[in-house]
Amino acid sequence: MNGPHDLGGQMGFGLVSPEKDEPYFHAEWEKRALGLTLSCGAFGAWSIDESRHARENVPPADYLAASYYEIWTRALEVLLERHGFATRAEIDAGHKQIEPAKPKRILTADMVPGVLAGGGPCDRPVETEPLFQPGDKVRTKNFNPATHTRLPRYARARTGVVEEVQGSYVFPDDNAHGKGENPQWVYTVVFDGGEIWGEGADPTLTVSIDAWESYLEHV
């Protein structure tokens, strides 16, 4: 979707302001928001792709004004309600009102080291050979889906060069919407700055994205 999250090349956000000796958290609630997001992810009810799409769906004015942990929290509430774990009314009231859906897993403290160390690998085998090889000239798709995609707007309908075949991975455009993992080959595709930004582009700049095979066509 062409949401507020797709920020590459937008203007008007001002200077980057790095904070000296930045703490990991700026408030106690940020710690809980991180832990809640990971704990609820362990339910096994939604994928990382569905959670990213929930964050993209935070209304633009709210998304751009929020800290990232607030975006996570807003998205988490949507996911909890969608999957039957907690309603907006319950969270507004601050207490349980109805029995929740049954999660596949409840994350307890003793499980945390193993779960964090294991992560969630999303490479998957595919039966086809890669359509593209390093050095191939490719053009990215021009599309504007209302659904989840990982092809940023700035890199659509652009010509670049395949640098590397990176393996095959879950296809987020499908997986975010419960349509299955449908893995595809992923390629690192490099674009000259001028191809993306045109007049006035930094001549020393190249930008790469990691693109699923169906984002690409031969030139």
């Binding site: 710690k31 832990g35 339910f43 907690a86 969270i91 601050g94 349980k96 929740p100 409840i106 994350l107």
Partner: peptide
């Protein structure tokens, strides 16, 4: 805090895991 309370009351999360 409200979110954590609701989920804890439902037995869905372990605050010690957080």
């Amino acid at each position: 805090r409200a979110l954590e309370t609701v989920l804890t009351e439902k037995g869905l999360i372990d605050p010690a895991a957080i």
